[in-house]
Design a protein around this nucleic acid. Structure first.
Lengths: 238, 238
DNA sequence: CAGGGTTTTCGTCTTAGGATCGAAAACGTG
DNA sequence: CACGTTTTCGATCCTAAGACGAAAACCCTG
């Protein structure tokens, strides 16, 4: 009832503390069969030497989306960042010692064929074996991985992890690494094709060193995120 | 590269503006066959007389979750709020005239058998026919509805809209109202039962005024959100 | 109290996507 | 040229959801 006449943004401001807002991104990529995350090593306190997610403070003229894109541009070429989406807000008052900082977390994806130049303090780390991380960044990263795994099932988000053209086996390896278990190349191709997410380029590439049939090259039909509506359980008529 | 040695939260603070953080909730309920949202009518500028979502400023000792629960407690009894989840961050610099206010939006659900006392400026409005809304609150509300509709398909979230016990027909009406199209009572029962989300109480209730077989009462087996893993397309072994 | 209307409930049929398996295709190698 | 290897394709099985209709169980009326 207290806001009957008082719009929230016009209430007396709480000045006993400073509340900041930062944006952070769990940027992941499949490299050499493992799902890896982009982390930079802190030099100063708090949490010196620990590894942290890329990000930084939100500016006054930015949306959280434009802010995270700006800040990630300092780490990786923006064109290599094929997908960015909001994850969640992390707002535990104690999540950062000292000042209050609310974080909007993002999931960022980089295709596996790119190897961007990184600053000296920045490196890829396998999510399965993370180094000591700062603040709640490990939690954020695990949330990011969970989101990715879910979306691999019901969207075409694989396009953001795969190169422009790929063989079905390569795509299977990407999916396997991201999901954490082996998937069948046969089923993967059939499922994605039936959804209209995958199409053959017509090209084939030479067989591997141990022989075998030369694989065909495929590509995703769309490089925008598309959700498979077939998962509506109680479907609309028609 | 600029944050090589500078932790985000230790950068010089931008004092040219005040950035606030508010929490807002799209609280919805099925009443008389329609999906309705809780809105309060603003008295003061900006946007006087327009209808706004419940919420308010984030306090320094709160998470966004505890904040929205505290603020909603002023509108509806907390025990009547059966489900609350984060929706998204809305951060357009122009979303609120004047000060910069970032909003963390939530989806809140109230079961259809409760009719909480409301403050005088607050009322339920059908989402299909909203009055003039303030700021970006209509967008937030439509996002909330979309989230609800998706989750009705692949989770047991219906428990949060339904009373503790209900007939299949009542549940069908709830789902129909929330989804915006008629669903089959037969299929609804079978689908939810097969998932293990629904169970019969053994009780039956008297038939309606126009006769008919007396319906059996059901309940949700769990009142916590559970996701149907059936929708993993490429399932883990086992 | 018998019969018709109503609503719920159950079973069956159909459709469709996903899993599994195995065969065929196309290549290297010895 | 036979053999191993890898990819690709097709056939079959399984499970789940949608559609439909029949049966069950009640009300009301004549």
């Amino acid at each position: 009832m207290s806001n009957t006449n008082t719009p929230p943004e016009h209430r007396e401001r709480d000045t006993s503390h400073t509340t900041g807002h930062e944006v952070l991104a769990g940027v992941v990529q499949v490299r050499r069969g493992a799902l890896k995350a982009l982390l930079w090593q802190r030099a100063r306190p708090p949490h010196p030497n620990r590894w942290a997610l890329p990000g930084g403070r939100l500016h006054s003229d930015e949306t959280v989306e434009s802010s995270i894109r700006r800040q990630l541009a300092e780490k990786v070429d923006v064109r290599e960042l094929t997908h960015v989406e909001q994850l969640a807000v992390f707002s535990d008052p104690e999540r950062v010692p000292g000042n209050r900082v609310v974080a909007t977390a993002f999931l960022g994806l980089v295709p596996c064929d790119t190897d961007p130049e990184l600053p000296g303090d920045t490196a890829w780390h396998p999510i399965e074996a993370l180094p000591e991380t700062a603040f709640d960044h490990e939690t954020i990263l695990l949330t990011a991985r969970e989101r990715l795994r879910s979306k691999l099932s019901y969207t075409n988000i694989g396009f953001a992890l795969a190169p422009p053209k790929f063989t079905v086996s390569e795509l299977r390896d990407i999916y396997s690494a991201a999901l954490g278990y082996r998937v069948s190349a046969t089923n993967l191709q059939r499922v994605l094709s039936r959804r209209g997410a995958l199409e053959a380029t017509g090209e084939t590439v030479a067989a591997g060193p141990s022989g075998g049939r030369p694989p065909a090259l495929f590509r995703f039909t769309s490089r925008d995120l598309q959700i498979t509506d077939r998962f509506a359980v109680l479907r609309p008529p028609g």
